[in-house]
Design a protein around this nucleic acid. Structure first.
Length: 250
DNA sequence: CGAGTTTGACCTGCGC
DNA sequence: GCGCAGGTCAAACTCG
């Protein structure tokens, strides 16, 4: 099972920012599915013949990479977004960012800020905006991948680095992962999903926000088991999206 | 003085 | 082609 952070944050889900109102709930579902491991894909009722189509759809929707479009000049880096409940706009993630722009967003009272990694060799960018629907929610969208380690975390190695890159957003500063109205956490029939169990997984733990499907897996269900194979050698689409330094296998 | 922020202008892609 | 909106640039400004 691929994790973005660690076991407690396995199902951190990348959510498309609401800047694309045209996105249909079904598209969210595709995103959710694709942002889980292949094993998760296989666990959900996604017909095999639909998977490639979903992947292409994903690239179109989430990466804004028009598939098979000739003459495409600017190829965008893969992007992934986090919705975080926080009073702080610019959440500390272990990297140093330089703000290079700010724009008003249509239909939103809050501006969107643009940041670039201060490392001159690093092309990673991030966008930070507040949700117009819930001002307490900060939407952070990362684009590209860092070619260096974090700064300010001299000890702890890679694990610290990618924890710093994302974990701090959810564990410090009172930040919480947030589910938009359009994508509520799935009601889980699993007995492990008692309030007690949920509380045990830190203050905010998301489950696999894989749509309203009753087949959505709980966090516990996503944990690797001996009976189920680990993710294939190549991470597939997920590997294309999530920088290697941010992923680790459990 | 260097690093980071602000902000208006400009560029680009896309839909009509 | 035109207008719109998102994204980027760069000069001016602020701060330590």
């Amino acid at each position: 099972m691929l994790n973005l952070l660690d076991s407690s944050t396995t199902s951190l889900i990348c959510l498309e920012p609401p800047s694309r109102p045209s996105m249909k709930p079904a598209d969210y579902r595709v995103l959710m599915l694709l942002f889980q491991s292949r094993r998760f894909l296989q666990c959900l009722p996604v017909p095999a013949e639909n998977r490639r189509r979903n992947c292409l759809r994903f690239r179109e929707i989430f990466c804004r990479q028009k598939v098979k479009k000739k003459g495409q000049k600017r190829i965008r880096q893969p992007r992934f977004a986090f919705m975080t409940k926080s009073e702080v706009d610019h959440l500390e993630d272990g990297y140093r960012w330089r703000k290079y722009g700010q724009k008003a967003v249509k239909y939103s009272p809050f501006p969107r800020s643009y940041y670039r990694c201060t490392n001159s060799k690093c092309t990673v960018k991030k966008r930070v905006e507040r949700s117009s629907e819930d001002p307490s929610v900060v939407i952070t969208t990362y684009e590209g991948q860092h070619c260096h380690h974090t700064v300010g975390f001299p000890r702890g190695g890679l694990n610290m680095a990618h924890k710093a890159a994302f974990g701090s957003q959810f564990s410090s500063q009172g930040a919480q992962i947030y589910y938009p109205e359009t994508q509520p956490p799935p009601r889980n029939n699993n007995n492990n999903d008692t309030p007690t169990a949920r509380d045990h997984h830190s203050q905010h733990l998301p489950t696999a926000a894989a749509s309203s499907s009753s087949n959505a897996l709980s966090l516990e269900q996503q944990e690797p088991t001996n009976s189920q194979p680990q993710v294939a050698s190549d991470e597939g689409l997920l590997g294309d999206i999530v920088p290697p330094g941010m992923m680790r296998r459990t």
